[in-house]
């Protein structure tokens, strides 16, 4: 069974994404409300996909990408989900190793398709 981690401090959004991904039968969806919790879960588990916001308490989404790529040395697909759609931020995210970038507001249906593609389903 696939394991997906959703990191965002917006409870309503996390709840919706979890519901959507569960309905699509993508696997078990875990949540982290801040960067510290996300790091802890990443250190303790192996995920098949990570969806993360950029602006979170304690550690940003970009720090999470760096942690996965440089500390954990994993190539887990990462989708950055952010309200900040500046070209510079998008390029920085991809440069650090993110696989996809979705700007808020986003369509849950579009997110599901992108997740499906990254999970090769």
């Amino acid at each position: 069974m696939m394991k997906i981690l959703v990191c965002d401090d917006d409870e309503a959004l996390v709840s919706m994404v979890r519901f959507k991904l569960s309905r699509e039968n993508f696997g078990e969806v875990f949540k982290a409300a801040d960067g510290r919790e996300a790091k802890r879960l990443l250190d303790e588990n192996t995920f098949d996909l990570i969806i993360s916001d950029i602006h979170m308490p304690f550690h940003s989404g970009l720090e999470i990408v760096t942690h996965v790529r440089q500390v954990l040395k994993k190539n887990t697909p990462i989708i950055i989900l952010s309200a900040e759609g500046l070209e510079e931020t998008v390029l920085q995210a991809f440069d650090m190793g993110a696989n996809d970038f979705i700007t808020k507001p986003f369509s849950p249906a579009e997110l599901a398709i992108r997740v499906k593609r990254l999970l090769n389903l």
Partner: peptide, 15 residues
């Protein structure tokens, strides 16, 4: 409040 918060984050047909 819940509807306003969600409306800010989701788009498309869901919105």
């Amino acid at each position: 409040n819940q509807l306003v918060a969600l409306k800010k984050t989701i788009s498309g047909s869901s919105s």
